[in-house]
């Protein structure tokens, strides 16, 4: 429940790496640092899924990480939005066939926003976050 619109909370994101190559991780951190600085708008990475509104998932989901991804997803309180960053989480990307992958991500958890690119540019990630924010507001409106 919002008291007024201006009392709306900031967007906090939890980042989960499901076996990615690190490229997306770097770009996510680069997004948060001074050149792009989305922390101006209260967008920041948090260390616990329990504090998060947005789950950033990267990587093609290695078999060992599948149960952990599900656990992290369950720990995020509703309403939540899942954002898949990078080509390999969307369709496998260069890792399109493997014996040790359980992806793509939307095969494991429902994904709301896809950010393609290998890795996506920080501008792309910010654009995705804006889309995620719109969806989150819609979901918040639907809550009783």
């Amino acid at each position: 429940m919002n008291i007024t619109k201006s009392f709306n909370r900031s967007l906090w994101a939890f980042h989960f790496n499901s076996g990615s190559c690190n490229g997306c991780e770097i770009e996510i951190v680069a997004t948060l640092t001074p050149r792009y600085d989305p922390e101006r708008f209260g967008i920041k990475l948090v260390g616990s899924p329990k504090h998060a509104d947005l789950l950033l998932v990267t990587g093609p989901v290695v078999k060992k990480m599948r149960p952990r991804l599900l656990r992290v997803y369950e720990q995020i309180p509703d309403p939540k939005v899942v954002m898949c960053v990078g080509a390999c989480g969307i369709s496998g990307g260069p890792f399109y066939d493997s014996y040790n992958l359980d992806g793509p991500i939307d095969d494991v958890i429902p994904v709301d926003v896809y950010v393609p690119g290998c890795p996506p540019r920080p501008e792309g990630i910010i654009f995705g976050v804006v889309r995620a924010l719109q969806k989150l507001e819609r979901l918040q409106g639907e809550l009783p």
């Binding site: 093609p60 014996y99 359980d102 992806g103 793509p104 095969d107």
Partner: peptide, 24 residues
């Protein structure tokens, strides 16, 4: 054993084609 090229290599049913899965 993944690097073996004989019958002990990775069988086809263990290979997941990520590109073909979960198309909305």
């Amino acid at each position: 054993y993944p690097w073996r090229k004989d019958e002990t290599g990775v069988p086809d049913h263990m290979v997941k084609d990520l590109w073909a899965v979960g198309r909305p």
